[in-house]
Amino acid sequence: MNVSEIISHHILDHDFGVMLGNVRLPITAHSVTIFCVSLFLLGALTWIAQAHKNRAGRLLTTLMEEYVSFIRDGVVLPNMGAEGRSMLPYFCTLFLFILSVNLAGMIPNMKTATSNISVTAALALCSGMLILYSGLKYHGLMGFIKGFVPSGTPLWLVPLVFPLEVVSTVIKVCVLAIRLFANMLSGHMVLLCLLIIVFVVGQMHWAAGVGSVLPAMALEIFMTCLELLVAFLQAYVFTLLTAIFAGSVIHTH
């Protein structure tokens, strides 16, 4: 196994090969992680949402209320206005889901599913659907299509501007997926490379390998802390950009 194969082996999704007749079921390490995270979120948040008499329950409920208020006042309302209020559950779920999946990779035997382009593409697709729904809901089909042409555009420029605006919107959604995927993947790659350094150097001479353990571990700890920060940051960026794009469709120029 060369270094590239080791990295691929650790980062790529593992298909468990579950078949239903001749149809392959997408039961992979990433989809199982996503399913576990979803179950955990569903159970935990449903429990927190109930009225509690004990102090810990009340504390968690208050914490969740603060979280909802942060998403509403910091992400949804400034970018989407009052129209975004009805979509608040989507954004609350989106941020927590991405964050939980990002952090799941820190748990042994679990994977960071957001380092899979299919997972981030699925999330971007959901956000794209939300953006489309927002445009259709507040402007209707014709209004939504007209929204792609900025007001004041000369008529002769419309055939040029319209496709550009449509492609721009599609690219924005695609970039959502690529940004999250690239950030989470690169972090994991760096972590793996730092670990592999020890073995690569150790192959040259065992003493060099032992000597590289401490610096590699120090860098590993530093990168893990950075990964934690990136996990929060990317969840926030994805949620914020979805709100901004949906807001730009609702409040067209």
Binding site: R24, P26, T28, I34, S118, A121, A122, L123, C126
Partner: peptide, 13 residues
């Protein structure tokens, strides 16, 4: 892209 995982993630989410 793994279309199966993509579809399952969309459904799951």
């Amino acid at each position: 892209p793994d279309w199966g995982v993509l579809a399952l993630t969309v459904l799951n989410f």
